[in-house]
Design a protein around this nucleic acid. Structure first.
Lengths: 128, 128
DNA sequence: CGGTATCCCCCATGATACTG
DNA sequence: CAGTATCATGGGGGATACCG
């Protein structure tokens, strides 16, 4: 049980650590799904992303994409057609993040049943 | 519900998919840190967790732990001393999740600098 | 000590309408 | 089609006080 100092420099449990911000960004519901979708389907237009991710509003989609663009995770390309065409693509950094996100997604998929079972058991033990 | 399925598999981009709930739970800021801490340090008391995770309030800690307990990720043990002693431990399911979370954490560590650089570049390009 | 209950505020988010 | 602006709201989460 060593401490979890990867580099000895930063500790993610401390508020000022940049990783905390990174994890916070990743933690965002829509962000994960956006990355997942781009990873699975490659370059997509804004509208395609919107219809691919059920329930996301344009506002949230744009916001997520801006954040990801700022972090260097996605690249935004504008083609000056009329009407304008905008596409989003994962950068190399984004692709590497996509792999990590895929790991989480895979874990969720593989253990979904266990979790649902655990929830049922927990809930049943409480309603009586 | 049928629309939630693609080739017999669940699609995480659909709202009703259980993986979405799982990812949502994982996405929670504190939850990730709680799992990380338990993974790194093993069984801990409530107070130890609270002081290990900078900035978390008791309310949020308890809430996170309850959710994780419900999902079968952590086990809660109560020793009837006076005052009462409560410890939390990752279950086998929780340990496997811990590995996935560690992957994300490692990614964050490794690419922190790239992200910070990307942000600076992005911000500079916008302030005139 | 660990947890619950209560109050309350504020920000993230949704809805809507509008521009290029 | 992609994005911005504006307003309203609700619930997430902080502070506090109190139980077992």
């Amino acid at each position: 049980m060593d401490t979890d100092q990867v580099s000895g420099k930063w500790d993610a449990t401390k508020g000022a650590c940049p990783t905390r911000q990174v994890l916070g960004r990743i933690g965002d519901t829509w962000t994960m799904l956006v990355i997942s979708t781009l990873e699975a389907q490659g370059t997509l237009r804004s509208g395609q992303l919107k219809s691919a991710i059920e329930g996301i509003t344009q506002k949230m989609l744009t916001q997520s994409l801006r954040h990801l663009e700022r972090d260097g995770v996605v690249r935004r390309d504008v083609v000056p057609t009329v009407p304008v065409t905008v596409t989003y693509t994962l950068t190399p950094l984004g692709l590497s993040l996509g792999l990590a996100v895929a790991t989480m997604r895979t874990w969720a998929y593989q253990h979904m049943d266990e979790i649902v079972a655990a929830r049922n058991e927990y809930d049943e033990a409480r309603e009586t």
